[in-house]
Nucleic acid binder design. Structure first.
Length: 566
RNA sequence: GGGUGAAUAGCUCAGUCGGAUAGAGCAACUGCCUUCUAAGCAGUCGGUCGGGGGUUCAAGUCCCUCUUCACCCGCCA
C-alpha cells in the first residue's frame, strides 16, 4: 500500500467485544477517503492479500469495514506451552536497557510519614519493580528532606527547650520530635528574632560547625530508624540520598546558571525567569535559586540533583514520583536544567504526578480528633480490621487455624490491601481512602486476587500434584469457552507490562490481574480440574499453574506477596 | 486573576492511538455449596459520559466555550 499510509496505525487492536473475535483492524475506514473506495472493499482486498492462517481463522469483515480476527486454539496452546517453560512467562527483556533513576518516597526528617508519602512510596516501588523486571538498571533514590531552613529552626528551638536531644541519641522519640518541630515552626513564624537566629544556625550547619552537625546527625538518625521500620514492613528497598547530599554542589549550580546568563536578581534573590509561569498579579514567576540571605532552597537542590544524576549517575531516564501539586515546580526545574544544557536530548526526565489521598466524603484525611494520620497507625488499623474480618469468617465457617496463621495472614493481607488500593486507582486522580472497600473479598481488591492465587494451590494440595512435575511435553487442550477466554487473557501479560513500563500507570496491571482472577474463577466454577480424564486433567492443571504463576509475578511487580493458603 | 487537573450508574472508580450495543465493584434484589476453599459463580436493577458548540465515516475519548470542584502560584519542601 506504500509508505503514504504507514502512519495509519493501529494495525491491530484487541477487539472491543468478544463477539467480534479477538483482534480487530480498523484501518479500512480511515483509508476509504484517501483511496476513494468503499471501506468494505478495502477491507476485502486487505483480507485477500493477507495470509494469517497459521495464527487465526479466516478474517471476517463486519460493520462499516472492521476486519475481525479470531485466534486459533492450536496457536494459543503453542504460545501457552512456550510461556509455561519460560521463567519470565514470555515477557521479553527490553532491547534498550537504560540507567533509570526513580526518585520516590522522600519523607522529611523530624516529621512523621503520612499518606502522601505512602502513595509515593508504593507507586515508586511498583514502577521500579516493573522497570527492573524489564531489564533496566534502576537506582531507587530516597530524596529525604534532611537539609535547609527547617533544621536551623529545629536545632535552635531544641537548644532552648530540650538540649539533651542534640547531644544524646534517642533522647526523644519521633512523636516528641514532631511536636517540638511544630512548636519551633510556630515560633519561627511569629518571632522575627528567632527567624534571624535560625538562619544563623543554617549557616553554621552549612559551614559544618561540629556541634551543629552532631545535633543534625542525631536528628536524622532518629527519623531514619523510624522510616526504616515502615520500609521493612512494606518490603521496600531504597537508597537514601537526601537533600544534604547535594549541598557541596549548590554554589556551582548558581555559578553555572550565572555563566549561561540565565540569572536575574530580583528583590535581592537570584532567580531564573521562564516563559509561561506567572504569579497572582500576572507578573513573571521566578524560580529562586539563591535567597536574599545567600542561602539556597529546594529548587537549587533539585537542580543540583538533576545535574548529578545525569553527569555522575549517568541516568538515561529520571522519574520523579511526587504529588501533582509540585508539577509547576518540576516543570520549572526541568526547563532551567535544559536551558543550562544539563539535559542532553536523548535523556528523558519525567515528573510522575499523583493525586491526593482523601478521607471519607472526599475531605482531607485525618483522625477523629482532626490530626494527620500517622502512617504506622494507618497500616496497623488495616491489619487489625482484616484480622477481625478473618476471625469472624473462621467462626462462620467453623474453621480452626493457629494464632500464627491468623497473625501472618492479617499482616500480609492487610498491608497488601493498602498497597493494592493505592495502585489500582489511576494515580493521576485523587482517591478516597476506605478500609471497608480495600479489605473486601470481592471486586478489584488484594484479597480477591490473593484468593484467586490460593485456589490453584489448593487444587494442587488436594490432588497431591506438584505443578513443577507436570512435564515439559504436557499438552494444553483448549476446548471449553472458559479455557479459551482464560488462555487469551494469560497471553496478554507481556503487552500489559510494556504498557505499564511506557505509561507508568500501575492500575493497568491491577486491572489485568483483576480480570485474570475473574476469568480463572469462571473457569474454576464451570470445570472440574481433578475429576476429569487425561489428557484434559493435565491440560487444566497447566492452566491453573500458569494462572497462579502469572498472578504471582504480577502481584510481585506491585510489591505484593502471595499466600499459598488463605 | 493566572496555571494545572478533574466532572462517566445512588456510592467508589475503569475505560487502551477516536471504532461497533459505555464497563467493574459496592449498595438493592434473585438463584447456585453431598462434587478441587462459596474469600466463589450466574443473573436482575441502575447511564442525556457536567451543559453547549465544532472536527470526523465514527467522539466518553480530539478542539472551542461555559459551569462546578480540587490543587499550585517569591525567597518552606
Amino acid at each position: 500500500m506504500g509508505d503514504d499510509y504507514a502512519g495509519v496505525d493501529p494495525l491491530l487492536v484487541l477487539s472491543s467485544n468478544p463477539k467480534f473475535g479477538d483482534y480487530q483492524a480498523n484501518m479500512a475506514m480511515g483509508l476509504a477517503k484517501k483511496l476513494g473506495q468503499q471501506p468494505r472493499a478495502i477491507a476485502q482486498s486487505i483480507v485477500d492479500n493477507l495470509d494469517v492462517s497459521e495464527i487465526c481463522e479466516l478474517p471476517q469483515i463486519a460493520g462499516a469495514g472492521f476486519i475481525n480476527f479470531t485466534v486459533k486454539p492450536s496457536y494459543l496452546a503453542t504460545q501457552l506451552q512456550a510461556m509455561q517453560l519460560d521463567s519470565r512467562l514470555g515477557v521479553a527483556v527490553t532491547e534498550k536497557p537504560q540507567r533509570v533513576v526513580v526518585d520516590f518516597s522522600s519523607p522529611n526528617i523530624a516529621k512523621e510519614m503520612h499518606v502522601g508519602h505512602l502513595r509515593s512510596t508504593i507507586l515508586g516501588d511498583c514502577i521500579a519493580r516493573v522497570l527492573e523486571f524489564r531489564g533496566h538498571d534502576v537506582l531507587r533514590l530516597n530524596h529525604v528532606g534532611d537539609w535547609g531552613t527547617q533544621f536551623g529552626m529545629l536545632i535552635l528551638y531544641l537548644r532552648e527547650a530540650y538540649p539533651q536531644a542534640l547531644t544524646t541519641a534517642d533522647a526523644l522519640d519521633l512523636g516528641d520530635l514532631v511536636v517540638l518541630y511544630k512548636r519551633a515552626k510556630q515560633r519561627f513564624d511569629e518571632d522575627p528574632q528567632f527567624q534571624e537566629a535560625a538562619r544563623q544556625e543554617v549557616v553554621k550547619l552549612q559551614a559544618k560547625d561540629p556541634d551543629t552537625i552532631k545535633a543534625w546527625n542525631l536528628l536524622c538518625d532518629q527519623s531514619r530508624r523510624e522510616f526504616q521500620v515502615i520500609y521493612d514492613r512494606l518490603k521496600i528497598e531504597l537508597t537514601e540520598r537526601g537533600e544534604s547530599f547535594y549541598n557541596p554542589y549548590l554554589s556551582s549550580v548558581v555559578e553555572d546558571l550565572r555563566a549561561t546568563g540565565l540569572l536575574v536578581e530580583s528583590d535581592g534573590a537570584q532567580c531564573v525567569f521562564l516563559d509561561g509561569f506567572t504569579n497572582r498579579e500576572g507578573d513573571p514567576l521566578p524560580l529562586i535559586v539563591q535567597k536574599t540571605d545567600g542561602g539556597y532552597n529546594y529548587a537549587t537542590t533539585d537542580l543540583a540533583a538533576v545535574r548529578y544524576r545525569i553527569q555522575t549517575d549517568k541516568a538515561d531516564r529520571i522519574i520523579y514520583i511526587t504529588d501533582a501539586g509540585q508539577a509547576d515546580h518540576f516543570a520549572q526545574v526541568f526547563q532551567v536544567a535544559k536551558l543550562a544544557k544539563w539535559i542532553p536530548e536523548h535523556i528523558e526526565i519525567t515528573h510522575v504526578p499523583f493525586g491526593l489521598v482523601l478521607g471519607e466524603g472526599g475531605k482531607k484525611i485525618k483522625t477523629r480528633s482532626g490530626k494527620a494520620i500517622k502512617l504506622k497507625d494507618l497500616l496497623d488499623e488495616a491489619i487489625e480490621r482484616f484480622s477481625n474480618l478473618l476471625k469472624t469468617r473462621l467462626i462462620d465457617e467453623e474453621r480452626k487455624e493457629t494464632e500464627e496463621f491468623i497473625a501472618n495472614s492479617s499482616e500480609v493481607i492487610g498491608l497488601s490491601s493498602v498497597k493494592y488500593a493505592d495502585l489500582s486507582q489511576n494515580r493521576t486522580s485523587n482517591y478516597v481512602f476506605s478500609y471497608d472497600k480495600m479489605l473486601l473479598d470481592k471486586g478489584n481488591t488484594a484479597p480477591y486476587m490473593m484468593y484467586a492465587y490460593a485456589r490453584p494451590q489448593s487444587i494442587a494440595r488436594k490432588g497431591d500434584i506438584d505443578f513443577n512435575q507436570l512435564g515439559d511435553n504436557a499438552q494444553i487442550i483448549l476446548a471449553e469457552e472458559a479455557e479459551l477466554t482464560l488462555a487469551k487473557h494469560l497471553l496478554q501479560l507481556g503487552t500489559i507490562i510494556t504498557e505499564v513500563e511506557r505509561d507508568l500507570l500501575p492500575n493497568r496491571l491491577c486491572q489485568y490481574l483483576f480480570e485474570l482472577s475473574q476469568k480463572f474463577n469462571q473457569f474454576y466454577d464451570k470445570h472440574s480440574v481433578l475429576q476429569v480424564e487425561e489428557p484434559i486433567k493435565t491440560s487444566r492443571l497447566l492452566l491453573c499453574d500458569l494462572t497462579a504463576k502469572t498472578l504471582k509475578l504480577g502481584l510481585n511487580l506491585l510489591g505484593i506477596p502471595v499466600l499459598e493458603r488463605m
